[in-house]
């Protein structure tokens, strides 16, 4: 199931994201610009500095992964981007608009699938259309097409409890894509899945991305997942989260699972692992 299309010619030309638009058009939908962003959480117990002086520009259509240890502020950065959480200082612009309130021109996928258990798979995807008052007929067609694309055509009427974890997460990705957002925020979407399901969903995600001009901001704990998926990998330090280094991943698309044994791929893994060793995230000697 879920076989990649055999004819790669279908996807070539679309596989290099961003080529259709000028690379440095900050007003293009899906362009993310983060400048000098700080976030401090204040509570009665004191202050916690979550993010310090974060600068990052993401071009339209780029796939950027953020990699870092637990509690480094990755998810906080995602929340700031969505406008669901306010920053302490700095500027965030998405598609040329400053983010000052919750931004609804995007799709979000969390680690939990957050499916509504009283709705079928299809209706879970369609909630997006209902809340956005999209055209019903058109939305239904799109939702069906999306589910078909992730091999869930036969599960349209299944309730979430009848689906496996991987299937549920696929439904939640379809839901996030229904309105064709210029920006997709993903907070460890595959973190709760088993290794094989995870591989399959990575492939599915890349395929969905190759078919649309969409910026993806992807948070993960997994070094190889970040490299496998991304155009760029942002490595963050432990709290307070700063950007330690940004890697351009120079691997051809479409990505194939076998590329994970490619010397170039392993080179990235080594480099990133070394950074985490230097940061004290990994300790091998005691």
């Amino acid at each position: 199931m879920n076989a990649m299309p055999a004819n790669d010619s279908l996807t070539t030309g679309l596989e290099a994201p961003g080529v259709l638009t000028p690379p440095h058009d900050p007003d293009a939908p899906g362009h993310v610009s983060i400048k000098g962003v700080n976030k401090i959480f204040r509570s009665r117990k004191g202050e916690v500095e979550a993010l310090r002086a974060v600068d990052l520009d993401i071009k339209r259509g780029e796939f950027v992964s953020v990699l870092g240890p637990s509690g480094c502020g990755k998810s906080t950065l995602l929340m700031l981007l969505s406008g669901l959480l306010g920053r302490t200082s700095g500027d965030i612009n998405v598609g040329g608009k400053e983010i000052l309130k919750p931004n609804s021109d995007l799709g979000i996928v969390f680690q939990q699938d957050v499916l509504l258990e009283w709705r079928t798979a299809l209706d879970n995807v369609l909630i997006q259309a209902e809340l956005r008052k999209m055209d019903k007929k058109e939305a239904l067609e799109k939702a069906r097409a999306l589910l078909r694309m992730v091999s869930l055509a036969d599960f349209e009427d299944a309730l979430p409890r009848e689906l496996s974890g991987g299937m549920r997460q696929r439904v939640s990705i379809c839901r996030a894509l229904l309105h064709e957002p210029p920006l997709m925020l993903m907070d460890e979407p595959f973190g709760a899945l088993d290794a094989m399901t995870r591989d399959q969903l990575q492939i599915d995600l890349l395929r969905l991305c190759s078919e649309r001009d969409m910026t993806v901001f992807f948070i993960t704990h997994s070094i190889s997942e970040a490299i496998f998926l991304s155009d760029r990998v942002v490595v963050m330090t432990p709290r307070p989260g700063r950007i330690e280094q940004v890697f351009d991943i120079d691997l051809p698309r479409p990505r194939r699972l076998a590329m994970r044994e490619d010397p170039k791929f392993l080179g990235y893994v080594h480099e990133i692992t070394d950074i985490f060793k230097n940061l004290g995230v990994f300790r091998e000697e005691y």
């Binding site: 929340m79 969505s82 669901l84 919750p102 931004n103 609804s104 995007l106 799709g107 979000i108 969390f110 939990q112 957050v114 909630i127 997006q128 809340l131 956005r132």
Partner: peptide, 9 residues
């Protein structure tokens, strides 16, 4: 998460 999702939609 459910509330975040609702608001983002």
């Amino acid at each position: 998460e459910m509330l975040y999702l609702a608001r983002s939609m």
